[in-house]
Design a protein around this nucleic acid. Sequence first.
RNA 1: GCCCGGGUGGUGGAAUCGGUAGACACGAGGGACUUAAAAUCCCUUGCCUUUUAAACGGCGUGCGGGUUCAAUUCCCGCCCCGGGCACCA
Length: 934
Amino acid sequence: MHKKFDHQAIEKKWQEEWKQAGLNDVGVRDNDKEKEYVLVEWPYPSGNLHIGHWYAFAVPDIYVRYQRMQGKQVLYPMGFDAFGLPAENAAIKHNKNPREWTEQNIEYMKTQLASMGNAFSWDKTCSSTDPEYFKWTQWMFTKFFEEKIAYRGKGVVNWCSSCNTVIANEQVQSDNTCERCDTEIEKKMMPQWMLKITDFADDLIDDLDSLDWPSHIKDAQRNWIGRSEGALISFKLKSDADSSIEVFTTRPDTLFGATYIVLAPEHEMVTKNKSEIKNWDEVEQYIKTAAKTAEQDRLDNTKEKTGVKLEGITAINPANNEEIPVYIADYVLAGYGTGAIMAVPAHDERDFEFAKKFNLPINFVVTEVSEKVDAAGALLINKEGEVLLQKRTKDAPVDPGLITTFGGNIEEGESVVEGLARELREELELDIATNGSTARLLYSVMPKTHAGKKIAVFLITDVDDSALVLHEGESIVKLGSLKDLENLKIQDMSEVIERLVSDGIQTISSNAGTLINSGEFSGLDSEEAKTAITEKVGGKITNTYRLRDWSIGRQRYWGVPIPIVYDPEGKAHPVPQEHLPWTLPEDVDFTPTGEPPLTKSVELKKRTEDIFGEGWTPEVETMDTFVDSSWYYLRYIDNQNDEEFSSMEAQKKWLPVDLYFGGAEHTTMHLLYSRFWQKALHRLGLAEHNEPYKRRINRSLILGPDGNKMSKSKGNVIDPDEQVKLVGADTVKMYLAFMGPYGEVANYPWDMGGIAGLRRFLERVNGLSEHVVDNEDETEEMTHQIHKALKKVTEDVLQFKFNTAISALMVYINEAEKNGLSVQSYDLFLRALAPFAPHLVEDLWADAGRTDSIHQAGWPAYDLDLAADKEVTIGVQINGKMRGQITLAPDATEAEAVAAVQKNEGLLAKIADAEVKKVIYVPARILNLLVNEK
RNA sequence: GCCCGGGUGGUGGAAUCGGUAGACACGAGGGACUUAAAAUCCCUUGCCUUUUAAACGGCGUGCGGGUUCAAUUCCCGCCCCGGGCACCA
C-alpha cells in the first residue's frame, strides 16, 4: 500500500530542502555548461499573487527544469518592479511611506512565490526600488542626457487628471482614457523630459528581422512605429518669397495634382503670418474650436470635413508654378510629418472630401491601366450620385437602390470583360423591357473596395451611346459603347478621364499607376516619378514615423528621481555619479495636487544647494516606471556589481535573453522601450548586444470559470493560494499547463472539473509504484510505450506544447496501470514528470531509495528504435472512401498491404469481384484501392 | 478601411511537408463497491437513419465552390469572432 498524497507536507519538505541545498541558485556550479537565459516579466508587488502570475511563472518553470535536466546552466531570475502609483495611493490612504508598503508586499509575495516551488535563481534577484538598482537607472539617464538621447523637450502631453500626472502615448487607451484609471485624457502643453526613441525608429523596425519572435508581435511593433516612406517638399508663399511651407507626402508623384495646401490649425505658420491673413477673426475662431475639440472627435473620420481658407495667403506649386490656396483644417494633425500637407483631391479620399465641400479643383494625374480584369460585382450610379443598381441578381427586377448580387457568371469561352458586358446588357434590356428603365444616365464612381477586393465599376452615359469602364484590383480601364460591348478596346485612359471630367464626374483613386497631365513626367509610372519629381522640385526623400519620443517625466513621488539639477540660470545639469543614487527625500506630502510632490521637499532642495551651491534647484519629477523595467534583464546577470550596472563579462556570458515569456499587453510598450534602451546603451558602448531578447513568447490569459476576464466585481476570481492549499502546487501548475498550448493567442477559462482531473492523475502517479514489476518481467510493448512517451514529452516541451506532453504521460500511465512497468521504466517516468510535478516526483524518488535530487538526475534519454511502433493499423479506402483497416509493419511493402486485404474478409466482401485498377499505398498511412464499380 | 490571428463534439483541446478527424482531459449516461453518500474502479459517449442491441450505411472540422485516388490541411469566393493600427498625408 502506498502512502497518501499529502501535498502540503511534501511541498513544505522539499521547498525547504531545495532552499537549504541551494539547488536552484545559479552560482558557479554549472559554469562549464551551456547557458540558457529564461526571462519572465518581473511582477509589481501588489501584495497578492493572482492566477495570472502562476500562469506566467509556473508554466515556464517546466521548460526551465527540463533544460536544467538536459544539462544546461539555466538562469531563471525573479525580482520586483516596485515603483509606481498603487504604492503611492496606498501610502496616501494609510499615511505611510510607500517604501514601507512596498517592502512589506515584497516580503509577502516572496512567500507566495515560494509556494510555487519554481526553480527561480534567487541568487540573481533585483528590485527596481532598491537604491543599488535605481542608482544605475539614474546613471544611465545621465549618460543619455550627455549624449542628447534624453532631452528637455516641450510638447503636447497626455494629462490624466485623476493620476495627476503625464502619461505616455502608449499608456493612452483607444478611447482616449488612462490605462490605469480610465479617466479621460487631456492634452496639455508642458516642458517634458523625453527620450529620443524616434532616433532609433529605423533600427527598431529593421532589426526585428533578426529576432525569433512570433510574426504578429513584429507586425504590431512595425505598425506602432508606423514608418512611411515619402518626401519633404517646399511650397513657396506668394505673398512672401522668403517663406515657405514644407509638407510631407508619400505621393510626390502626384505633385502636379496638388491643388491646395492644408495646415494643421496649430501650425506655426498660421500665427506667424497673422498680419497677412485678411480673415484673421474667422481663422482664430476656427483654431480655438479645433483646440477644444477632443482628440477623439478629431479622429472620427466619418465626420464632415471642416476648415478655413487663409485669405491673403497663397502658395506656389513647385511642379507647375501654379498659385494655389492655403487652408487650415483639423483633419491635418500637427504632430505627424510637418503638420502640413499638399492636397491632391484626385488621388486621396480625404482631400477629395474636403475639395468637394470647398469646391476646389480636382486634377487627375495618375491612371491605372493593365491587361488584367477580374471583376466581382458592378455598380451603376446616375448623375445625381444615386445608386441605381448595385450587384444585383439576374432574376430580380431592377429596384433602384437595391443592393443585390450581380455579375460573376462568366460563361465558358468568354473573357471576364465579355461576360460582364453580356450580363450588363441583359440586365439593362430586361430592365428597359420590364420597367421602362430609369437607368438612362449611369455613372460610376467606385474607388471603394469590397471584402478586400476592388470591385468592377461600370460607367454608362446613356443607353444608346454608352461608355463602359471596368476597373479592378491594381488597375484596368476599358471603354466602349453599350452597343458594341463585345468589341471593347482598351483606349487611352486620359480620354476616359477627360470625358469624366467634362461630364462633371470624378473618379478618385489612391492607387499607383501611370502619370498623366504631369508635364515632362507624363507616361512615367508612380514609382519612377516619385524620385524624379522630388528631385526636380528640390525636395528630399525621407521617412516619417507615427512613433513619438518617449516622455518619461511623472509628477508623482514614488519613482526614480530624475537626476538633474538646475543652476541659478535654469540650465540643466546631470547629477554626477558620485552623488548617485540620487535618493527620494522623505519629507514629502504626496497628496496629489497636480504639483510634483518633490517640489515641496526642503530636504531635496537643501541637498541640492549643499552639493551644488546656492540657488541651484533640483528636478522634481520622477521617472515613468517603464524606465525601470527597460534594463532589469541586464541587472539580474550581475546583481552584486557595485562598480557597473552590468559588466561586459556578464553580458557576454548571459545575453541576449534566450527566451522571454510575457504578456501580450507589453507588445508595444515594455518590449519596444527595452529594445530601445538596449540599442541606446549599445550606441554608447555600454552594452555588448544590439537586441535584448532573442526569442519572445506571448502567453494567453486565464479567464474565470464563466469565461469572462477575472475581476472582483464579477466575482469570478480564482485565488491561487486557495487552490494550492486544496490540491497542491503541482496540480495547479500541471492544470495550467494542460489547458492548451502556451503562447497562443487564445484565452482559457478556468474549469473546476479540469483541475480535479489533474489531481486524479497525480494521485495515480502517487500509487504507480504498486504496479512496478522486475525489469525482466516488463512486456516488450510496455518498454516501447515508455520510450514513445519520453520521445513525445521531449519534443513537445521544446515547443511549449505542455498540454500534449502531459497527455503523453497520461496515455502511458493508463497502460502502465494495466500492464505493469519495470523498475527501470518507473525511474524514467518519474524523471520525465519531474519538471511538471517537481514536489511529488522528488518525494517518490526518495521513496524509491534515491538520495540525490531527481532534478539533478538528468533528463531521460529515449531509444529511437524502442520508441518506434512495431506495427501500425492503417485505414483502407476503396475508391477514396474509408472501408476498413489492416495492421501491418510500418515499413510493409505494397504487396504485403494488398495481401493483408486479401486476408480480411470484411474488406474482401466489399471489393467482391470488382477489378482493382490502381493501388495507392503510403506506408504507415493509407491504402487506397481504386476499383471498377460493378 | 488596412495589417495579423482564429472558427474542429456538450466543454478545453488533439491531429495539418494532404493520408483512419475527435488523442488526452472535463462533463454526461450506465454499472460495480457501500446501510448510504463521497472517493475509487469498469463500460458508453460527434450527429443521423434503422434496431432490443449491434452490424451496415449516410453525414460531419464556419459557409459555397475547386484541385486530388484522398482535403480540418492546398486554391478561389464569402460569413463570423479575436487582436493591432487608423483623417498618419
